[in-house]
Design a binder for these strands. Structure first.
Lengths: 111, 111
DNA sequence: TCCATGTATGCGGCTATCCGGACACATGGG
DNA sequence: CCCATGTGTCCGGATAGCCGCATACATGGA
């Protein structure tokens, strides 16, 4: 693979991570893992303006992480690939261990 | 868990993802998975100014994703937890499948 | 102490991202 | 056709991120 296309691939890779690098989008992804939802439902669930939710969904849609389907006047979104949840869970575990380690350091200091 | 601390946890979770949401940082993480390296080594490997690499490493260090160790005048960085690579690989697979799916759609259109 | 090597940071600029409110567009029923 | 419901987009502003250059700081040897 050429350097150029490798760089491009890494850019795409980073953009996938970028897609879940926002608190609201993480909540959206987990919420859609629970069950498919439309925009208004998510807006209520996240206590966030509809326009904001719509824009986040557009981001996730562009990355192919969610799928949309029209249902009457509403648009129902669902998670494309559950492995995204798997990756997020791994990151959460790494985070948890990191925080645990840091907490232990704090205890050492206070002794 | 209270709403406040849950929000805080989600913020931390998103910041972990943010840490690997940059092409150069992704390359750094994979490069450190290969072997531990100092800043100059990484700067040469990435063909990127030393100051830029140093700042990215600081980000990763703040998130606890890398560990630093002084070795003479140099500072050697290493990956804290290999599960980060696992999570990144999963994202890459999801990306690959997404691109494959999109490529198939393109073929359908050109028929 | 002075110097070479290696690393971190302040600075200025540019770009990207996130946001809510207002408004336009789409859909289906009356 | 008009309206209610639901969704997407434009706007303007505020914030955060990334960058290279120059420079200050740290370390160990001469």
């Amino acid at each position: 693979m050429s350097d150029l296309s490798r760089e491009e691939a890494e850019l795409l890779h980073s953009q996938c991570c970028q897609a879940v690098a926002d608190p609201k989008r993480i909540r959206i992804v987990y919420a859609l893992h629970d069950k498919e939802r439309n925009v208004t439902n998510l807006a209520g669930y996240l206590d966030t303006p509809q326009s904001t939710v719509s824009r986040h969904l557009k981001e996730l849609l562009n990355r192919g992480m969610v799928t949309s389907r029209r249902e009457g006047p509403a648009v129902v979104y669902s998670l494309t690939d559950d492995r995204i949840i798997h990756a997020l869970d791994i990151m959460r575990q790494v985070l948890a261990d990191t925080l645990r380690r840091q907490a232990q350091l704090v205890e050492l200091l206070s002794d």
